[in-house]
Design a binder for these strands. Structure first.
Length: 178
DNA sequence: GGTGTGATTGTTGGT
DNA sequence: ACCAACAATCACACC
């Protein structure tokens, strides 16, 4: 709920917006001409499926979530999302797969949940086709809430010996630079 | 007031 | 098999 907008306000002072040279936020884009190649996929979003689960964040996004905080910490002035995106993307490519591994793992778990939600979503559509969608919806909601498997936290106990020893050898290669 | 947009990459779903 | 759309984010610009 972003209802706490009362305090944020962020000082409408321009200084807050143009902290660095990243203030591209000012110029969104050419007013004319069609937007990006996807012509604002928002159009598709118009479908607004209430039950449609959002796509699971990829490893990059998982990393971004963490990167956002770090980035903002070091660059509290930079509020531009593009700045984080660029920096994040750059660093992402700079990271070795071994470093991305933990993010991918997390993303994999997220994906598992997504798949599960998708299953329920598909089922909903299929069952929803029927006229008993109403009662079905209620039952499904409860079932989904109670049928929450905690297999995802199987190793929440805290296994420390999971080091995978990467690039221990001289062979650090990682990914081809550039 | 509200919503779209900008930028990143990865992933998935649809055709 | 390929392509397109979408996932988060945040403040602003446009309507």
């Amino acid at each position: 709920m972003k209802t706490a907008k009362g305090k944020d306000k962020v000082k409408t002072t321009k200084e807050a917006l143009k902290p660095v040279d990243d203030r591209k936020v000012g110029k969104r884009k050419a007013p004319a001409e069609k937007p990006t190649k996807r012509e604002t996929r928002k159009e598709k979003k118009a479908k607004k499926d209430p039950n449609k689960p959002k796509r699971a964040p990829s490893a990059f996004f998982v990393f971004l979530e963490d990167f956002r905080v770090t980035f903002k910490k070091e660059n509290p002035n930079v509020k531009a999302v593009s700045a984080v995106g660029k920096a994040g993307g750059q660093k992402w490519k700079s990271m070795s797969q071994a470093e991305k591994a933990p993010y991918e793992e997390k993303a994999a778990k997220r994906k598992a949940e997504y798949e599960k939600q998708m299953d329920a979503y598909n089922k909903n559509l299929e069952e929803g086709s029927d006229e008993s969608e109403k009662s079905r919806s209620e039952i499904n909601d409860e079932d989904e809430a109670s049928g929450e498997e905690e297999l995802l936290e199987k190793e929440a106990a805290g296994d420390d010996e999971e080091e995978e020893e990467e690039e221990d050898d001289d062979d650090d290669d990682d990914e081809e630079e550039d």
